[in-house]
Design a binder for these strands. Structure first.
Lengths: 182, 182
DNA sequence: ACAAATAACTTTAAGCTTGAAGTTTTTCGA
DNA sequence: TCGAAAAACTTCAAGCTTAAAGTTATTTGT
């Protein structure tokens, strides 16, 4: 493991590391080591937080992150939201939403109606029960995140937020270039 | 696959946003808005990259990220690696590895042997075929990441790497505090 | 008006992932 | 030594996720 002060980030995409080893560094073709290290570290942070959030949602609320996210989308839409819109906002496939909605409707957290003006469209909304439950979860969630990120100074937080904005522009720019449908 | 909106970061954990809305900002209890925004942005970057990597692994190599990661772990271990060690390094459950190993063994990418000294232990290693395949994928992967992160200046990359190190310390510190087993 | 295209889901098949429970081996302690 | 405990998986049930194919409903082009 390279000389990093914090210990090994090995998760998904971890092919990164082999550039670190003295063995491979010699033959590095375009030397993408810096980017790989960055990606690996980003992924590690993200995975650590996500794993912890999942764990606590399960243990403290017997729920899951996807369900929480779906309810979060609905929280601000008091009139409900079209299924396709939820899918886009959550960046997941429509089929996925269908399944989640089924479960959340069964458990009484959300309601689902067919649009009166377009019978293809499904409108989903939090039920009062769902809203109450979500508010409890959201408050707890905010606390967890605050704890996990709390070791960062205000300044570091601001810098990180800014650098991540730049990174996002880089990513989106790169994705846009290759003629993938927007 | 739904075309996902790139602009708004709404993915997993997105309860964040409701602090942004004028509605909620008034009653923010401990005001964890800064941390939530940071988390949301981090997650967005990570998700965008991961989704793209998965897509390309599938389209260009008919493979998956978990398989790639598993092979990446083996790449540097020419003598093979114990299954439990792989599980720890990849930060996933042992049962998960069992399944992945089965598939990769079937396809001839890895070999699997029972340790001669301890018959509980499974040792897995890349086959020559697996190694060749992995090297192709790894080279492509490094290029994808370089593209995605390439819009970042060297300076920004360095700053981001540093801030992420601080963040990771914050996270790990926070996780450590609550007496969860390491 | 009406057929073709488009939209908005839903269904399906396949793969990933986990926590919990189960199996086989080793190790440890009295 | 020998039985209990621990280790290292494996199996299982459930849930998430996606791409692709299928349905039903609405729009469009002519």
């Amino acid at each position: 493991m390279a000389e990093q002060n914090i210990d090994e980030p090995k998760a998904a995409g971890a092919a990164a590391e082999w550039i670190d080893g003295e063995t491979k560094v010699l033959e590095a073709p375009g030397d993408h080591g810096a980017e790989l290290r960055l990606w690996l570290r980003l992924l590690t942070c993200s995975t650590l937080v996500e794993t912890e959030v999942r764990r606590r949602l399960r243990e403290e609320f017997d729920s899951t992150l996807p369900r929480f996210d779906l309810m979060a989308q609905l929280e601000r839409a008091s009139d409900g939201m079209v299924l396709g819109e939820v899918s886009k906002r959550m960046m997941v496939s429509p089929g996925n939403i269908t399944v989640l909605v089924e479960r959340l409707a069964e458990s009484g957290h959300i309601s689902r109606t067919t649009s009166p003006t377009d019978r293809r469209v499904q409108i989903i909304a939090l039920t009062p029960f769902g809203r109450t439950e979500f508010e409890k979860m959201a408050a707890a969630h905010a606390g967890w995140i605050a704890d996990l990120f709390g070791g960062l100074s205000t300044k570091d937080g601001a810098v990180l937020l800014d650098e991540l904005a730049k990174l996002k522009r880089s990513i989106v720019g790169s994705l846009g270039k290759a003629g993938r449908p927007a």
